[in-house]
Amino acid sequence: MSDIAVSNGSVNAAGLKSDARREELWMLAITFPAVLLVTLLVLLPMSWLSWLSLFDANGVFTLQNYARLAISGAYVTILIDTFVVSFAVTLLVAFLGYPVAYLMAQSSPKVTSILLTAVLLPYWTPVLVRTYGWMAILQRNGPLNDVLIAFGLVNEPVEFLYHTSGAIIGMTQIMLPYLIIPVYIALRGVDKDYLKAAAGLGASPTVAFWRIYFPLSLPGFAAGALLVFILSLGFYVVPALMGGGKVTVIAMRIERSVMVYPNWGAASALAVVLLVVTLLLLAISIRIARLAGNFR
């Protein structure tokens, strides 16, 4: 009898291994088109750029492109300005987007649909069109300055455009949906019974929000903020138009290196450095999130 049981166990184990192997093959077959697409559109171009950064204009192997980035103060300034602008945009988007996501999560389905449409409707408009719209609003003789002067808030038109502030304003409006949607999804997943339990234990609505609601929404908030920051690092159209040439980010410098000089090696080196720094920040953020999760 025991021999039969052992035999049946061996057959079942072999069957489970066969099923697991078959499932792995199916998963490989299903994901192969996506992996192939990512390889062709992402990995190969990135590898090509990395390869170009190691050669000069004559095709001679050199590290001069990277040495120039480390030695030249202009490149360091551009890198710092890019991260400062991206960080400022992320802070503004977080400050403006979280209350909107909270309102959407707490409202009725009808109000939520209206708010969601209002958030996504500008996203359906091309970035270039929205940028020129903001330029019309923020110009010296634009409606925003007219309103500020009419209410006596300023005595003369404010220079919003062609400065860092103009680029930050335009990028903030474009990046808002990238934070509002993840935060809204995270807030909708919070069980309302937690807040009722906190109220039953004597916690005020403010205490319940900061001690329960906000911590539970942090995963969505962190994901949205990180997405906004990374996407802001590669912006080109808004800083180029609304910055008026006084704001130079890495994307603008890469375009100038290719179209004006042209120097594919220098442009590739800039792209590689931006990619490496972004990946390092992403890894640090993931590490901090894991440590915070373990701490809780």
Rank of each mutant, 00 (worst) to 15 (best):
I71E: 04
Y178L: 14
V111P: 03
V42R: 13
I284G: 06
Q64R: 15
V154R: 14
G189I: 00
R140G: 06
L40H: 05
R296I: 08
D191S: 12
L120D: 10
S7G: 15
D146A: 03
Y261T: 05
T31G: 11
F83V: 04
A88N: 01
N263L: 07
F209V: 01
P126T: 10
L187W: 12
V11Q: 07
L36S: 12
L179N: 10
G293T: 09
V207S: 14
I254Y: 04
L218K: 11
I250A: 00
N12G: 01
T278M: 12
V119P: 02
A29K: 11
M259D: 06
S165D: 03
P239R: 09
K192P: 02
P262C: 00
S217V: 08
V84Q: 07
L201I: 04
M104N: 03
L153K: 08
I78C: 03
L49D: 02
L153Q: 11
M27T: 04
G243K: 04
Q64N: 14
D19E: 06
L176R: 14
M135K: 14
G245D: 00
M175A: 14
I288H: 02
V127S: 08
G293A: 12
R256G: 11
T131F: 11
L25N: 02
P122C: 00
N145E: 04
L279P: 00
V93F: 09
D146S: 09
I30Q: 01
A74V: 07
A105N: 04
P122V: 00
V183H: 07
L279F: 11
L218H: 03
L43C: 05
A20Y: 09
A240H: 15
Y194V: 02
M1W: 09
R253Q: 13
V147S: 04
L161T: 09
L36W: 11
N8H: 12
D193G: 05
L36I: 06
L144Y: 15
T131E: 03
N145Q: 06
F32R: 03
V258S: 06
I80N: 04
A186Y: 14
L187T: 06
T206L: 15
L274A: 09
Y184W: 15
G234C: 03
G142Q: 08
A118C: 14
I230N: 01
A74N: 13
N8D: 10
R253D: 11
L116G: 10
Y66H: 02
I284K: 07
G224A: 04
D3W: 07
